[in-house]
Amino acid sequence: MLEQFVYFSDLLGCIVFAISGVLVAGRLKMDPFGVVVLASVTAIGGGTIRDMVIGATPVFWIHDTTYLYVIFATAVISMISARKAHHLPSFLLPLLDAFGLALFTVIGAEKALSYELPAVVAVVMGVTTGVAGGMIRDLLAGQIPLVLQKEIYATASILGGLLYTGSIALGVNASWALGIAMIGTLSLRLAALKWHLSLPVFNLRR
């Protein structure tokens, strides 16, 4: 039951991040190929890096090509829907990003623990899964990635990884641990967006 929940949550995370990639591509007026590329790297970039690092090869989307079909279908449907919508609310991309971050963080941490890796490594893999795809998307789009700015983004992912690994260490049921970590990540990220919370900026200027 848990494995099915994680699997479908992973697919949902791919859909959410793929949509965020489409929206960024749309703002930059990319052609359909560019849209699909940006949607793909956003959706599977972090998970690909995670699997390569922990030795889970072939990586998940090669083992299960459903991910590729889901991403392609999401990109096409999103392009059609966005054209008909004419105007997309400004909060849509950050909101989708927040949900994707929460989903991918706990899935990344869960997969690392399933390979019997230390908790600290699971936290790092959760953050990698959650933020790396968005970083690649932003770099390809010529933007400074959110994770490298003062935004509370990677911090929310770290919190989610800590909540998940800590809950598991305390003997909490895995399903509850996933829920706790996802809620924690999402709550911190949405709170940062709503109240404009941010980390201190490193500045060498006097």
Rank of each mutant, 00 (worst) to 15 (best):
82 A>E: 07
8 F>W: 12
88 L>K: 12
73 A>K: 00
138 D>S: 14
39 A>S: 15
194 K>F: 12
29 K>R: 15
147 V>S: 09
136 I>T: 07
49 I>F: 06
190 L>C: 02
36 V>P: 09
104 F>A: 12
187 S>E: 00
190 L>W: 00
36 V>G: 07
27 R>C: 07
47 G>L: 04
203 N>P: 00
179 G>T: 15
21 G>K: 07
13 G>T: 05
158 I>P: 00
174 A>V: 10
26 G>S: 10
139 L>V: 15
90 S>A: 10
113 L>A: 11
79 M>S: 15
116 E>Q: 11
177 A>F: 10
85 A>H: 01
206 R>C: 09
95 L>E: 06
102 A>Q: 00
33 F>A: 15
193 L>M: 13
140 L>W: 08
82 A>H: 04
64 D>A: 10
151 E>Y: 13
192 A>W: 06
178 L>V: 12
17 F>M: 06
51 D>M: 03
146 L>P: 04
85 A>D: 01
119 A>Y: 13
71 I>G: 00
94 P>I: 00
78 S>C: 06
192 A>Q: 05
60 F>R: 05
197 L>Y: 10
183 I>C: 09
38 L>W: 02
183 I>Y: 00
122 A>N: 04
69 Y>P: 00
112 A>Q: 02
202 F>R: 05
137 R>T: 04
114 S>L: 12
180 I>Q: 10
5 F>Q: 05
97 D>F: 01
202 F>W: 11
44 I>Q: 07
23 L>F: 12
10 D>L: 12
103 L>I: 05
151 E>R: 13
58 P>H: 03
68 L>P: 01
92 L>Q: 08
133 G>V: 02
82 A>I: 10
60 F>Y: 14
126 G>V: 02
75 A>H: 01
111 K>D: 07
167 S>K: 10
87 H>Y: 09
163 L>K: 11
78 S>G: 04
96 L>N: 05
34 G>C: 05
153 Y>C: 03
197 L>I: 08
138 D>H: 14
126 G>H: 03
65 T>Y: 09
202 F>Y: 11
191 A>P: 01
123 V>C: 08
155 T>D: 10
